[in-house]
């Protein structure tokens, strides 16, 4: 669940945004209401309490227009101050980076990968990303 890391991420963005470009890429929903929904029943009440900034009642967008609509809502709700791009309907960038449901990459100015983070939610480690940035910038 991407929203669980939003607070940690924003701190990293605030610290390094003068030296690093942060791009948020919106990909297909991890827990859409019409798929692997986590927003129902007892579990739903627990996760809604634990992670109030995440969305729970969102259906998986069916076309590019709906993707942009949901991505816009996400951007507003999480208040992430960075460029946001929207993956295409074929999930081509998501597939190229094996990014679903959440993942970080840090890429140097020559286009080479410095840090390829693990797959979320358990492999999503903002502190590793921060360390990779700090090491790179010296």
């Amino acid at each position: 669940m991407f929203a669980t890391a939003a607070g940690s991420l924003q701190k990293i963005v605030d610290q390094y945004q003068d030296q690093v470009l942060f791009i948020n890429i919106y990909i297909r929903e991890a827990h859409a209401r019409d798929a692997w929904w986590l927003g129902e029943g007892v579990l739903g009440r627990i996760v809604r309490t634990l992670f109030p900034r995440a969305a729970y009642d969102v259906d998986d967008p069916r076309d590019a227009t709906e993707r942009h609509d949901v991505a816009s809502q996400c951007r507003l709700a999480l208040n992430l101050n960075m460029l946001m791009l929207v993956d295409d309907e074929d999930d081509s960038v998501n597939k190229a980076y094996a990014a679903h449901p959440t993942r970080f990459y840090f890429i140097d100015s020559d286009g080479r990968v410095i840090y390829a983070g693990g797959v979320g939610p358990f492999g999503l480690r903002p502190w590793e990303l921060k360390k990779a940035i700090a090491n790179y910038l010296g």
Binding site: M1, Y26, V58, T102, S109
Partner: peptide, 10 residues
């Protein structure tokens, strides 16, 4: 350098 942050709303 660029950080790519992949994710969705849910």
């Amino acid at each position: 350098p660029v950080v790519l942050i992949f994710g969705s709303f849910t």
